[in-house]
Amino acid sequence: MSRVRPTGAWDGTRFAHEGFVYGTDHELVHRVVPFVLEGFSRDEPVLVVAGERVRSLLAAHLGPDLGRLALFAAAETWYQGGARTLQAYDRDLRGLRATTPHWRLAAEPVWLAAEDGREWSRFESVANRCYDDMPYYSLCLHDRRRLPADVLDAVARTHPLTWGEGTPVPAAEYEEPGVFLRSVQPAWAPRPAGAEVLVVTSPWSARRQTCALVPDDRRARVGDVVLATHELLLNSLTVAPYAELTTWMEGDVFVVEVSDSGPGLPDETRGYVPPDPGDGPHGMWLAWSLADDAAVRSGPDGTAIRLYFGP
């Protein structure tokens, strides 16, 4: 254990993000316990958010030191959907940064094992960009015995660090957030021939038109559709004289596309990033939060964003 370097060369000034995949309880304990004890030795707050089995193992091996943890919480209670979970997480991180020079977190996102929790991989990817200047080490725990192959593949592609030879090392499979997001967003196909297309020059006048386009069996979602679409139109009309609003059904999913001929987005990840509390609401973040899914195509000739609303 003395040869283990739990955080390698991390100096506590920026975000470090490791995806630790293990297959035995022994591997888990011999990775996490030194990580926790190193934090104590550096007077860093150490937070642990994990499933019941991991918490039990750590409690048994930490003994009295368990009480020194700044947080020891059940991950099963944390997940509220991707956007809401990230917003709560973001709030906690900003609170820590206001009071703490640097800290470390060992977290087990147990919800990745469920179908409706897999979108979290997108937020893991975006964290590498939006939290780059946050001074903490995030050790993400993934049990290969309970996670499917596609989730483990996403872990490798969304974490810049992995564990090797007793120290964190660069992950060979890691992808930049923009690349990863494009690969996991809904497949981008041409608009269907029967799609409704409107040319919009005022986002306010388009609200009634958007409302009328929502199918009868989606009326329960009309508020979400109108507000999300309005936010995207506001963005488009700040960079272009008009936007196109296109809607269609894709199976049982209602699709809304807002496109413009502006200069393109500076960062395609911004819809996944919680707004800075000092800046007020961000249109793309709000739209992403209201829709069930989203996809982006952006370049120097314009931007098209699709929002997906299920039953």
Rank of each mutant, 00 (worst) to 15 (best):
P266W: 12
N235K: 11
E165F: 05
E257Q: 15
L58P: 00
L290P: 06
D153W: 07
D216A: 15
N128Q: 12
R97H: 10
L37M: 10
T77Y: 03
V29C: 03
T229S: 12
T13H: 13
V253Q: 05
V29A: 03
R191S: 12
E115I: 08
T7R: 12
L105T: 08
L161K: 01
S56E: 15
V155S: 01
H159S: 01
F254T: 02
Y131E: 13
D276Y: 03
R207T: 15
D92T: 12
N235H: 14
W78C: 11
A60Y: 08
F40S: 05
L245D: 08
R146D: 09
D132M: 10
L47T: 05
R84L: 14
L58H: 01
V4H: 02
E250I: 00
E27S: 01
R221Q: 15
A294Q: 10
V36T: 01
N128S: 08
Y242T: 11
G166M: 06
T99Y: 02
T99S: 14
L105G: 02
G82P: 08
A70I: 07
R218E: 00
A291N: 08
L290E: 09
V226H: 08
G262Y: 10
G283D: 04
E165G: 11
A59T: 14
W204G: 12
S121Y: 02
G283I: 06
P311Y: 09
F20Y: 12
G117E: 04
A228W: 07
A187N: 00
V179F: 07
E231Q: 15
R94L: 14
R145Y: 04
D301T: 13
H61S: 11
I305N: 00
L112F: 13
T85S: 15
A107K: 02
L290D: 10
R55E: 02
A243C: 11
L66S: 00
D92R: 13
L198C: 11
R53S: 10
L28Y: 08
V21L: 06
E44M: 04
P274E: 06
S236I: 07
A70T: 12
A304D: 08
E18L: 12
R84C: 03
P177F: 08
E231P: 03
W120I: 05
R144P: 01
A240R: 06
E244V: 05
G178L: 05
R207G: 02
G63I: 10
W111F: 15
N235G: 11
G95V: 01
S121T: 13
R270M: 13
L227Y: 12
A70C: 07
V225F: 09
R144K: 13
L28G: 01
P34M: 09
V32K: 04
P168W: 02
V200Y: 03
L86K: 06
A149N: 02
V258G: 03
V214M: 09
A59E: 15
E268K: 00
H142P: 04
T201D: 13
V184L: 09
